[in-house]
Amino acid sequence: MFLRFILRHRQVAVLSTILLFSFLLLTFQVRQVVPAIDFTRKVLLISLSPFLRATTFVVSVVTSVWEEYIDLRNLRQENRRLKEELERLKGEVKTFRESELENQRLRTLLELKGQTPTKVIAARVIGKDATNWFKTIVIDRGSESGVRRNMVVIAPGGLVGRILEAMPFSSRAQLLTDPASAAGALVQRSRTTGVVAGYQGLTTRLKYLPLFADVAMGDEVLTSGMGGIFPKGIPIGKVAWVRRPTGALFLEAEVTPWADFSKLEEVLVLAELPGQETAWNPSQGNEGHL
C-alpha cells in the first residue's frame, strides 16, 4: 500500500527525500562540526582544486603571452625612451645607495625591536567562492606547506581573513567581508574596541561600539588581539561612516577594508606568531565565526 503510494508519487518522493537530506545536513552543521560532512566537503574540493589550479595557470600564461605581444609592438618606442631614462637613472642610483645604507641601519634597529621574526607562507589565489552569499578564496598552499585552520591571512594592505579549512595542497580562506566572519577590532585613535564583521559580502561593519564611543569618519581600525585568532595591530581599514540609530544600544560604523579583496592575487599566511602559539587551536573562542 505504502510502496504503491510512493511509486505513484515517485517524483515528489525523490524531491522530498533530497530536501529532507539537505535540511538535516544543514541542521547538523549549525549545531556542531560533523567530521563526515567536513570530510565529504574536503573530498569534493580536493577533486576540483587541480582544475582550478590548471585554469588559473592557463589564464596567467595566456595573459602573459598577450602582454608580451603588446610589449613587443611598443618595443622600439620604449627602447628610445629607456635609453634617455637610463642616463637619468644613473644619477639617481648614487642617491639610492645612500638610502640603502640608511635602510640597512633602520632594519637592524627594527630586528632588535621585533626580537623573533614571524614566519609567513606566501600563497597564490587560485579560486573564489562559487556563490554570491559567502566571500571565501582558495589558495594554492595547504597543510603540506604548514597551513592550518584559523591561521591569519594578510595582504600588503592589511588583514584579509583566516584559514577556514586546509587541504593537503590547497586551503580555503574566509575573507573579512564574509557575512559569517568576525574579528576583534580597535579604533587606533581613541582605543575603542568592537567587533568587525562582514556585511553583505561587500564591506565590514564595526559592531558593539558603546553609544558615546569616540569614533569618527577616517579613523583607522586595527585588530585588537582579543579572541585569540587575529594578533593585535594588523590594519583592517578606515571608518567610512558612523551612525547613532535612535533607540539602539550600540553605535554603528562601516569600515572600508584596506585590502581590495576583489583583486587579491597573492596573500601571506601567518604561520606562527611569537607568544601566540595557542591561538591556532580551532576549538578556542568564537572570534572568526559568528
Binding site: I18, L19, F21, S22, F23, L24, L25, L26, Q29, V30, I37, T40, R41, L44, L45, L48, G127, D129, A130, T131, W133, F134, K135, T136, L164, R172, Q174, D178, A180
Partner: peptide
C-alpha cells in the same frame, strides 16, 4: 557548489 563555497554543505543542495 557548496563544496566550492564557504557556506554550509546542503544549502545549495536544497
Amino acid at each position: 557548489q557548496d563544496a566550492l563555497s564557504g557556506g554550509p554543505l546542503g544549502l545549495k543542495v536544497f
